[in-house]
């Protein structure tokens, strides 16, 4: 599904990595590893089309992603470092607004079910500014539960700020997505066991210029 060809990344003056290539098929889990500042987030943002690579190309189903921006966005779900959670909105409003802006409006029942599944049932109407860091992360992650049909998930440090039950829940969600033929690319500094038939790992450090 996703082909990455000879990617290079430049940040300011420094060349972070070059010659990075891989292919990703449905059902595959790709763990992007590397020390701080190696360019993990940059790589994920490139894969989303948010950043233009210094060199190389990214293709989705054979077509460069730049040539099919909105179509590609329709097959992609990205969770970044920032939660994209508005302080002024409640958890429910946040989830529904986020989905609507992404172009995938959901009904209130669907949103409620997702929030309940992620363990925020009792916090639904509270403004997000009163939520803890972990709870805010959960609001962001609730989008995953509504996006099982979207083939490619790109997750930047999804496990940060989560407690043990939430980590387990997220791992199960990822497993279900993979079993359904979806692909996941993620970064993490935590050891989380995710059962997958095809687990790959890329260490960005190997592509750094000497």
């Amino acid at each position: 599904m996703l082909e990455v060809d000879q990617l290079a990344c430049m940040r300011g003056d420094a060349l972070l990595f070059r010659g990075l290539s891989f292919r990703l098929e449905g059902g595959a889990l790709l763990h992007v590893a590397g020390r701080n500042g190696a360019g993990k987030t940059s790589l994920l943002r490139m894969l989303c089309g948010l950043m233009i690579p210094e060199a190389g190309e990214i293709r989705w189903r054979g077509t460069p992603i730049r040539a099919q921006r909105e179509e590609y966005n329709g097959e992609l779900l990205y969770l970044g470092h920032a939660n994209a959670v508005k302080d002024e909105f409640s958890a429910l409003e946040n989830l529904r607004v986020a989905c609507a802006v992404a172009g995938r409006a959901v009904s209130e029942t669907q949103a409620l079910a997702a929030l309940e599944a992620i363990g925020l049932a009792h916090r639904i109407d509270l403004d997000a500014k009163h939520l803890s860091q972990g709870q805010r992360r959960r609001v962001a992650l609730a989008r995953l539960l509504l996006a099982q049909a979207i083939p490619l998930w790109i997750l930047d440090e999804p496990f940060t700020a989560l407690d043990a039950p939430a980590v387990a829940l997220l791992a199960r969600t990822l497993e279900a997505h993979l079993a359904g033929g979806g692909a996941v690319i993620y970064t993490t500094h935590q050891d989380v066991l995710i059962a997958s038939t095809s687990l790959e790992r890329i260490d960005i450090g190997e592509f750094a210029p000497c």
Binding site: C48, G49, L50, E70, E71, N73, G74, L76, Y78, G80, H81, A82, N83, A84, V85, K86, D87, A98, V101, A102, G103, R104
Partner: peptide
């Protein structure tokens, strides 16, 4: 921009010009 929502807007399936 600060809370990451803008990033999600750029990844919307809807045209950014309309947003």
């Amino acid at each position: 921009y600060a809370d990451g929502t803008l990033e999600q807007m750029l990844l919307s399936t809807e045209p950014l010009t309309l947003i």
